[in-house]
Amino acid sequence: MEILIAIVIAVLTGTGLYLILRSRTFPVVMGLTLLTYAVNLFLFTMGRIQYNSPPVVNASDTYTDPLPQALVLTAIVIGFAMTAFVVVLALRARADLGNDHVDGKDSVDDVKEANR
């Protein structure tokens, strides 16, 4: 299972970063979301993988590590707030700059220059 989870984390990180490197805002936001999954899973699995042992006292015989869970729980909610903030920033940029390029450039020349 550990191998599979490591692969999941690797794939989420890789795909997330690839999308973050795109030049338009929306793919970047999607990339951020994927990266958030990767980070949350990574942090969460730092408490190791255990089945059927939720950290609720008296609910089972063994308990998994509750601390990463508490950290990740707030991280998920804050991750949402941050995604929302970036999305709204993208909307604002679109409204004020007239395009959805991450650098606020749209013309072919600009893009060429940015790619140089």
Binding site: I3, I7, T15, D65, P66
Partner: peptide
């Protein structure tokens, strides 16, 4: 694709390395 792929592999290796090592938690 190659730099993000490398980063993903790096993080995956890191995760695997940690997951297969003993845990010492304050929990």
């Amino acid at each position: 694709a190659s730099i993000s792929g490398l980063a993903g592999i790096g993080i995956g290796v890191l995760a695997y390395g940690i997951l297969t090592r003993p845990i010492d938690s304050i929990s």
